[in-house]
């Protein structure tokens, strides 16, 4: 655990230096230190008898509803942008100056629509799953 934390601290320090001093060359080192530190700390934590109880307490903080909210927050921007592009495609198609781009705009609208439909379906499914809703199970007919 100690080595992991040392590596992590070193990694953060190097990263800050590289960004502050614009020494891009140091960033790779920072990444190696950070990833190595995270893995070392994780493995050490796995061997630590107390860690399970500790992480369990952290895990208990997350309620189903809170995680649903997080899921919606994480997907909302993408959904909004897709809706915007769908709207944008419609607006530009109806205004006369987009004649040359029409096929591409229609395509853009269709792509946005498909992605929007899939993503919003998935948000409904995912939040349902987080809330512990069991999906409908198949009937196990005998073969």
């Amino acid at each position: 655990m100690r080595y992991g934390l040392i590596l992590l601290a070193a990694g953060v320090a190097v990263l800050l230096m590289s960004e502050a001093g614009e020494w891009a060359a140091l960033r790779m080192l920072a990444v190696v230190l950070l990833v190595g530190g995270a893995i070392a700390a994780g493995i050490a934590g796995g061997a630590h008898p107390q860690s399970a109880a500790y992480i369990k307490r952290v895990g208990a903080i997350f309620s189903r509803n809170a995680m649903c909210a997080v899921a919606i927050l994480l997907t909302a921007p993408a959904l909004a942008v897709l809706a915007a592009s769908l709207y944008g495609a419609l607006v530009r198609l109806t205004s006369s100056n987009a004649a040359g781009d029409a096929p591409l705009l229609i395509l853009g609208g269709v792509v946005a629509l498909i992605l929007l439909a899939l993503a919003s379906t998935v948000v409904v499914l995912g939040t349902g799953a987080i809330r512990g809703k069991t999906p409908q199970q198949p009937t196990e007919k005998q073969a």
Binding site: E19, G42, A52
Partner: peptide, 22 residues
């Protein structure tokens, strides 16, 4: 944002390593 991205990365990687180690 770049710094945050690199630093935040350590949490899930640590959790992954922890879970695998267990």
């Amino acid at each position: 944002g770049v710094i945050a991205a690199y630093v935040l990365m350590i949490i899930p990687i640590g959790l992954l390593a922890y879970g695998l180690a267990r």
